[in-house]
């Protein structure tokens, strides 16, 4: 079946998914999506101004934040640089979960993996980051990210199709790859290994 040529090696995938099956795609968000944004700004600025989440949501829900694998305490002074990985999570259980929380009373217990604050100038610029959405955060905002479209590694999509149950697969009503309509099995069996995917979901 002919397909439109992909741009920059990126395949666009548009899936029409039964509404109750959309959450099955959230684990893709936890593995990391590439987001074009402004960088060189604070974590708070990036989350509120460029990802479009409210300050209230940041304050109340985003209790655990990692920048390049290090726990963030102060979102106003921690700077996100080009190519950084930003992970967003709700509050976590367990002593480790409590320890990793923003501004935790236990923060001293993980000082070696605490993000040291940088100098936050206003020299922001266009760039990309890897964004990871975990647990309740993915459940809260995952659908809107997926509906807008997310850029992911093709390997993640391959893994998703390999592990998806029949119920999930049958919940994908139809799809398009680079604008060409295909059935779910055809999409699932494509070679996604070496490509990046611009994945967009439409709940039906």
């Amino acid at each position: 079946m002919p397909q439109k040529p992909s741009h920059n090696g990126i395949k666009t995938v548009h899936l029409f998914v039964e509404k109750n099956r959309v959450p099955a795609f959230y684990p893709l968000l936890s593995r990391g999506i590439i987001v074009k944004t402004r960088v060189g700004c604070s974590v708070k600025t990036l989350i509120c101004n460029y990802l479009g989440l409210s300050a209230d949501y940041l304050e109340k829900r985003l209790q655990t934040i990692f920048l390049d694998g290090k726990a963030v305490d102060d979102t106003e002074t921690t700077v996100v640089q080009e190519g950084a990985t930003l992970a967003l999570s709700a509050a976590m259980p367990g002593l480790a979960g409590a320890t990793l929380r923003r501004g935790s009373a236990y923060a001293a217990m993980r000082n070696q993996i605490t993000h040291q604050n940088g100098t936050c100038g206003e020299s922001t610029k266009d760039g990309t980051i890897c964004l990871k959405l975990f647990n309740l955060v993915a459940a809260d905002i995952g659908q809107s990210f997926l509906e807008k479209g997310v850029l992911i590694s093709g390997r993640y999509l391959r893994d998703f199709f390999r592990s998806a149950s029949d119920k999930i697969i049958s919940g994908i009503r139809s799809g398009e790859v680079d604008g060409v309509r295909m059935n779910t099995n055809q999409i699932a069996n494509m070679d996604w290994e070496q490509t990046q995917v611009d994945l967009k979901l439409e709940a039906v």
């Binding site: 936890s30 655990t64 990692f66 694998g69 290090k70 726990a71 992970a87 999570s89 709700a90 509050a91 976590m92 259980p93 367990g94 480790a96 979960g97 990793l100 993980r110 993996i113 990871k132 975990f134 647990n135 309740l136 459940a139």
Partner: peptide
């Protein structure tokens, strides 16, 4: 919310990220 939705295994992704 967290524990009823994902159990204690809600930690795997987060501890891995750390």
């Amino acid at each position: 919310e967290g524990l009823p939705s994902f159990g204690t295994n809600i930690l795997t992704n987060v501890i891995n990220e750390a």
